[in-house]
Write a protein that binds this DNA or RNA. Structure first.
Length: 415
DNA sequence: TCTGGGGTCCTTTTCCTT
DNA sequence: TCTGAAGGAAAAGGACCC
């Protein structure tokens, strides 16, 4: 990529004291936008992404492999009508949302609301490829970047040349352009004195916008917002606050710290209070190590622990092999092995087991997971099974991997 | 009504040791 | 031997995020 030429800094820029300027960058409708790059003929139509790969997607897969998907006739795309089976919507385009269809909605319900919607399977390999491209486009200009998932990042503008101009707006425009040139995709950027406020600011001017939020604008621009806009206040905390008559961030800010601590605990109460007052000193972290790796799967139909034990056993072994392969590919070993069961009534049960030494071996993981399973209640049908390896260290930085055995080793007794 | 998959982090409970 | 306090680690559950 050609070097990016920054505008010459204004003379006042160097003289003025540097303010902490943190940017939050959020790709606009990321998955749907990537799909529209591949299938431009779907622009303006209701499209939902999600569900599992089905035979109806064969035409799409073939066309993608042949590189002819841009010319695929609309009739070749699978529709939501008559969708049978599990699965939720990962994302929906705006024309689909107009029908009341939205993220996390069951596909069967969505099929009733908007049967004509086109259903595309999620293509995470492609989204990850675009994710790498846009992040590279960011770091070419501003290297101090924190990865926050597939479609968003934090960037510390404070010491980047030009990062102080127009409150960071000049640098943000440059980054937007570099991302668009590299990917054809747009993003929205919020710039503020910290990550908490930058995250909220990035929603102010979507899509393809830039919002600069200054500390003195807290009461005017943040306090009128709903508490749920604070990253970290989800449905439960939002409901609890609402039951106390607190719906806006301004109302939250009025609550005494002691009251919040009394009702939400020491750590959460203090965090709520600080957040409402726009205080957040978390640094932009350019590097982080994974804490755990897991694989899980939801079955097409709920499986019975006894009647379906062969099928469950095979899935269980496969999940262990997949996690082991993930660990080996990424060079990690883990010491705590855990399982997760989701039962027919949607309740979740987890069991953990800590090994004497860390491993990345499929058979060792399978044995430990089998011990966990023996301690779990199996009095209901199961809809989901998962295997997790935690307390990770890089291979070579701890003890040798334990229990190395041929990967096919043995099947567990249970199931 | 129906609720995926892959994560992180926090709180509470349980168990073990001193 | 019993009881209780205290502290830490592990286990379990849950909230939240993308």
């Amino acid at each position: 990529m050609a070097p990016v030429l920054l505008p010459a800094p204004a003379p006042a820029d160097d003289a003025a004291p540097k303010l902490r300027r943190i940017a939050h960058l959020d790709m606009d409708a990321f998955f749907a936008s990537v799909e529209l790059l591949r299938y431009p003929q779907l622009a303006g139509l209701p499209v939902v992404i999600g569900g599992r790969a089905r035979s109806a997607d064969a035409a799409l897969l073939e066309a993608a492999a042949a590189g002819t998907q841009a010319g695929l006739p609309l009739a070749a795309f699978p529709r939501l009508a008559g969708y049978i089976g599990r699965g939720v919507i990962t994302t929906a385009t705006y024309p689909a949302r107009a029908f009341g269809v939205g993220s996390a909605m069951g596909l069967m319900k969505a099929a009733r609301l908007c049967p004509q919607a086109i259903l595309l399977p999620a293509n995470f390999d492609e989204y990850r490829r675009y994710s790498r491209l846009f992040k590279q486009a960011v770091t070419e200009i501003a290297p101090h970047m924190e990865d926050r998932g597939i479609d968003e990042v934090y960037i510390d503008f404070t010491n980047v040349p030009g990062g102080q101009r127009e409150g960071g707006r000049v640098l943000a425009r440059l980054i937007q352009k570099n991302i668009f040139d590299a990917t054809g995709l747009t993003c929205s950027i919020g710039i503020a004195p910290n990550k908490l406020l930058a995250k909220m600011a990035s929603e102010f001017d979507k899509p393809n916008g830039i919002a600069v939020l200054h500390a003195h604008e807290l009461a005017e621009r943040i306090w009128p917002l709903a508490c749920r806009k604070i990253n970290g206040i989800g449905p439960k905390a939002g409901d609890k606050l609402a039951r106390h008559g607190i719906t806006t961030i301004g109302e939250l800010a009025k609550q005494p710290l002691a009251w919040l601590v009394a009702h939400f605990g020491r750590a959460t109460g203090a965090w709520l209070h600080a957040s409402a007052w726009g205080r957040d000193d978390r640094p932009v972290q350019t590097h982080s190590e994974p804490v755990s790796m897991s694989r899980e799967t939801t079955f097409e139909r709920d499986l019975h622990p006894v009647q379906d034990r062969r099928e469950l056993g095979a899935v269980f072994t496969r999940l262990c092999e997949q996690v082991a392969a993930d660990l080996q590919r990424k060079g990690y070993v883990g010491r705590s092995i855990g399982i997760k069961l989701r039962r027919a009534d949607f309740s979740t049960v987890t069991r953990d087991h800590t090994l004497a030494s860390a491993t990345q071996d499929a058979a060792a993981i399978r044995r430990a997971a089998g011990l966990c399973l023996k301690r779990a209640p199996l009095d209901q049908r199961l809809r989901l099974l998962g295997v997790r390896v935690g307390t990770l260290t890089r291979l070579g930085e701890s003890a040798e991997p334990a229990g190395a055995q041929p990967a096919q080793a043995r099947q567990a007794q249970l199931f």
